[in-house]
Nucleic acid binder design. Structure first.
Lengths: 148, 148
DNA sequence: ATAATCTTGACAATTTTACTCGGGTATGCT
DNA sequence: AGCATACCCGAGTAAAATTGTCAAGATTAT
């Protein structure tokens, strides 16, 4: 059930954008260095995030990336799903296009996979980038002295 | 976040044992055919389950496998973990031996991964094979006419 | 113009998955 | 005893996924 680096790096990059980004775009290089992710690889991931409408790009010199919406309007669920596809533990309980099987017994295990999927959905769809920023602020104390 | 066939086949095989098994052992062949799993492959999986103490084996002619405990005492969590290892979405929040990272920011995403892991844990540790049998009985109606 | 940056697509190493195969060992039945 | 039926064990392997790298081009601030 491990998340691949796609989902993990993607969330880290988006969190970086939420924490350090603002009016002016952040370059890929900045994010990649701060989050210790290979720049060409992050390039791929952020291209996916852009197509999913989660970040906006600004081309040319001093360009970079911006969050497409406010941090409280971006759930980690939308980030993870855009990069990993469905988070369902089995194909037959995928959110979008479940490929059902015919066997009666399979349906019993199907109930199980669905319970797991719903439980994961509930968590990742209820947590936004703003929630993560709040967690971070709390972790660092009121003066935020450990901000990077 | 998809479960591999190990976990899925393992749960199916254990459910088969819970549903059809009794005093006399079920042969691997029987389970493999009924659940449509390659027999030599299931052999590997059930060997792991045996080492984890979830099933007992009876060697020789008319031998096979039995659940080591009653269905209400076997959680799907124990089955999945024995076959897949930790179900944590990231290594740093593994139940057993979390490999922590040093970076402050990582710890924010770590909080997220931990919330996901705990949510999955809660589901799979609360569901037993008996629960699945109950689901099955309910699905088939009181006369259980669709039992295989 | 030039440098910084995004954009795209192809390619490649490594790891994991999902098996197969071949030979053992134990046990009940005749 | 001998045979059939099973479990037991370790090695090997093809395909897929993961985790990237690389090169060439497009766009824009200065």
């Amino acid at each position: 059930m491990r998340l691949s680096t796609k989902g993990r790096y993607g969330v880290k990059a988006m969190f970086d954008l939420a924490l350090h980004g603002g009016e002016t775009p952040l370059s890929l290089k900045t994010i990649a260095e701060r989050q210790e992710i290979s720049e060409p690889y992050l390039e791929q991931l952020i291209a996916t995030l852009r197509k999913a409408g989660l970040v906006k790009s600004v081309r040319g010199a001093y360009g970079g990336y911006l969050l497409a919406r406010h941090p409280e309007q971006i759930t980690v669920g939308s980030i993870i799903r855009s990069l990993e596809g469905s988070i369902a533990p089995a194909e037959c309980v995928s959110e979008m296009d479940p490929i059902e099987c015919e066997r009666a017994e399979n349906c019993v295990t199907r109930i199980l996979w669905e319970k797991i999927r719903i439980s994961i959905d509930n968590v990742i769809d209820s947590i936004t980038l703003q929630d993560m920023i709040n967690d971070y602020d709390e972790m660092c104390g009121q003066d935020n002295m450990y901000y990077i």
